[in-house]
């Protein structure tokens, strides 16, 4: 680089420096895979949300004479299920419950886990030991086993399934939150806040939260994929949603007996779970590498 251009660069007006989050956002937007996943997820979300206004067939209305029609039947583009209900409508309506029971546990676990981790990391000492040793107990169970143990004991139902999955993910988020908070706790700006007389709650809320939230958030988005699979899995076992509600896991279960008659219709609900799960995974990976600004 010549001396002149270097001078020119120095003389150029600096302008407002782009913030950290703006940089992350730009990197995510430039990533084709992330954008494709975001678009697919948005489409699935919106169609589930707007399902009643899309002019679909009634997802509850069955008919004995048109059971298990194959994909591509007139009026039934994705065929019909074992009770003659329109698969397209059920898949789109199914998104409502499936996404709710898949995503809500992660949101709840994110809120509880972040609070617990922040307290454990910031207060330290005995409080930290008490919280973190309790968390360790949950790590003694493989997550599938824990989810099934809790929902199996509580009994079938949407609420119980959400509760059990929240309990599964909460410890993992708490651990991440605690380790991130411990890393930030001794930094100068926290010390400065403490010196200025801020109380612990203010420091945690105002000074720490913004600095720890990013990594915890990215970790949590990575959990949504697992949560979707587990939530639908609980319904698949008969521990989540109850019939006749359209929900992907439950649909997969009730269509299981139809694999000898009309196999590919039976496989459709699983393909939806797969699509949502892989999109969330790729999106989370995209965000993670976008936040790793050093590379």
């Amino acid at each position: 680089m010549s001396a002149i251009t270097e001078l020119a660069l120095q003389a150029a007006p600096a302008g407002p420096a782009r913030g950290y989050w703006a940089t992350v956002g730009r990197r995510v937007v430039r990533d084709k895979v992330s954008i494709a996943c975001a678009v697919i997820l948005l489409a699935i979300f919106l169609s589930a949300l707007l399902a009643p206004w899309l002019g679909l067939a009634d997802p509850y209305h069955g008919s004995m004479i048109r059971r298990l029609k194959p994909i591509g039947t007139t009026n039934y583009p994705l065929g019909t299920d074992e009770l003659g209900r329109d698969m397209l409508a059920r898949l789109i309506y199914g998104g409502r419950l499936s996404l709710l029971i898949g995503i809500l546990p992660v949101i709840l676990a994110f809120m509880i886990g972040t609070s617990l981790g922040l307290i454990a990391g910031y207060v330290g000492g005995k409080v930290n030991t008490a919280i973190m040793r309790t968390i360790d107990v949950f790590y003694a169970f493989p997550s599938v086993l824990l989810a099934i143990a809790i929902s199996g004991a509580l009994g079938a139902g949407i609420t119980n399934s959400i509760v059990s999955l929240t309990v599964v993910f909460m410890p993992q988020i708490t651990r991440v939150a605690e380790s991130v908070t411990t890393g930030v706790r001794n930094m100068d700006f926290v010390e400065a806040a403490r010196a200025s007389g801020a109380d612990a709650f203010t420091i945690m809320r105002v000074h720490m939260l913004g600095n720890v939230l990013g990594p915890i958030f990215v970790y949590a988005t990575g959990l949504i994929s697992v949560s979707m699979i587990l939530a639908a899995g609980l319904s698949f076992l008969g521990l989540g949603t109850k019939p006749p509600e359209p929900e992907w896991g439950l649909m997969l279960n009730t269509l299981r007996t139809a694999i000898y008659v009309n196999p590919w219709v039976a496989a459709l609900p699983g393909a939806m779970i797969f699509a949502v799960s892989i999109c969330f995974n790729l999106l989370s990976d995209g965000m993670r590498s976008a936040m790793d600004i050093r590379n």
């Binding site: 639908a232 997969l252 299981r256 694999i259 496989a267 609900p269 699983g270 779970i273 799960s277």
Partner: peptide
């Protein structure tokens, strides 16, 4: 790898049964 960690394994089981047992 990403497909492996994202696939609902119970569904994959069904698909494999459809291909290798049913068809």
């Amino acid at each position: 790898a990403i497909a492996g960690v994202s696939v609902p394994h119970y569904w994959l089981g069904m698909v494999l049964v459809i291909i290798f047992s049913v068809q």
